[in-house]
Simulated scan of single mutants.
Amino acid sequence: MRKLRTYLVDFIQADFKPGLYGCTALFLAICIAFNYAVDLEDTYIDAYRGSWIRFVLFLGLDAFVYYTVTLLWLFFHQRLALLRTPTFWLFSGFGMIILAWWQDFTGYQPLATLPAFESVYRFAFYCLSNLSSGLTIWVPLALFYRWTDAQPSYFYGFRPDQGSLRMYGTLLLLMVPLIGWASFQPSFLETYPIYKGWGAAAALGVSEWVTALGFEACYGFDFVSTELLLRGFLVIGMAQVLGRGAVLPMVAVYACIHFGKPLGETLGSVLGGYILGILAYESRTIWGGIAIHLGVAWLMELGAFLQTYSQQRQ
């Protein structure tokens, strides 16, 4: 915990400015309130699912939020000259495009309709959906890293660091009571568990735990991809250009990708994203973030499974 405190204190002391953090908090509050008031993503953006318009809408939303917070940080830290550097626009623009492509991508749908998946369509659909980040995030980032990155030592935070893993393990333990409390909330159980079975186990002639573990592995892969893009590229990669200024804009777009989820989860993503962003920036590794993100995701699934099982027995 000492290293955790050191990371957080050092970063906040160097980065915190009341005007900056106040304006950023107000801006995010307005964005979040607007989304849930009009159901922006689910009702309007997702209405264009399968159309190029949806990609443009995601790109517009992500870029608006990201560059607004970036501009606030540059203004309050008196570093607006960075806006004139091609590297800033190259890195940030590429990040926004990949983020929007990942959010919009539906190319896995035709695969799920193949005859081989006919009896397990919905199971295959959700598994392929989670695995698709290999194409939308890993491939473009690997190519970008190979061609442009100035520090070719570790691929956007994949630097081994056992100390960070222990630190994140402590954070995960602290979140267990909160996840336990959340699992009793009706809104939580409307969303979780993500794995619904979909009759896949019976169709494949295997035990339920086999398909459940297979799905959770695919589900977990998407969280690894999330860490690579958000904390790896948008923090560690962008730190080459923005320094500490890479963290707050990442937090803003991280909140955006939660707009289709329960409000509490979106609000929690702001604090969680900020802490994970600081730790990624200070440690230059995302392994700890991967561990806690997977831990939280799977604990939420487990909590929902236990609640559902308990309700079925009553």
Score class of each variant (00 low, 15 high):
Arg5Asp: 14
Tyr7Ile: 11
Phe11Ala: 10
Ile12Thr: 14
Phe16Cys: 10
Cys23Glu: 06
Cys23Asp: 03
Leu26Gln: 08
Tyr36Phe: 14
Asp46Arg: 14
Ala47Tyr: 14
Gly50Met: 11
Arg54Val: 05
Leu57Glu: 00
Phe58Glu: 00
Leu59Ser: 05
Leu61Lys: 05
Val65Pro: 01
Tyr67Pro: 00
Phe75Gln: 06
Phe76Asp: 05
Leu83Asn: 08
Thr85Phe: 02
Leu90Lys: 12
Phe91Cys: 06
Phe94Val: 13
Met96Ser: 01
Ile98Glu: 02
Phe117Gly: 04
Phe117Ser: 04
Glu118Ile: 12
Ser119Trp: 03
Arg122Pro: 00
Phe123Trp: 15
Ala124Pro: 03
Leu131Gly: 04
Leu135Gly: 01
Thr136Gly: 06
Leu141Arg: 01
Arg146Asn: 08
Gln151Val: 15
Gln151Ala: 15
Pro152Met: 06
Pro160Tyr: 11
Leu165Phe: 07
Met167Trp: 00
Tyr168Ile: 07
Gly169Ala: 11
Val176Pro: 05
Pro177Tyr: 10
Leu178Met: 15
Ile179Arg: 03
Ser187Asp: 13
Pro193Leu: 07
Lys196Tyr: 10
Gly197Trp: 05
Gly199Arg: 03
Gly199Trp: 01
Leu204Tyr: 07
Ser207Ile: 02
Glu208His: 11
Thr211Gly: 01
Gly214Thr: 06
Glu216Ile: 10
Val224Tyr: 05
Val224Gly: 03
Leu228Ala: 08
Gly232Phe: 00
Met238Ile: 08
Ala239Ser: 15
Gly243Gln: 07
Gly243Ser: 12
Gly243Val: 06
Arg244Ser: 07
Gly245His: 00
Val253Phe: 06
Pro262Trp: 06
Leu263Ser: 03
Thr266Tyr: 03
Val270Arg: 05
Ile275Asp: 02
Leu276Tyr: 05
Leu279Gln: 01
Glu282Arg: 13
Ile286Arg: 03
Ile286His: 02
Gly288Ile: 03
Ala291Thr: 09
Leu294Asn: 02
Leu294Gln: 07
Ala297Gly: 10
Trp298Pro: 01
Gln307Trp: 05
Thr308Ser: 13
Gln311Ser: 14
Arg313Ser: 13
Arg313Tyr: 12
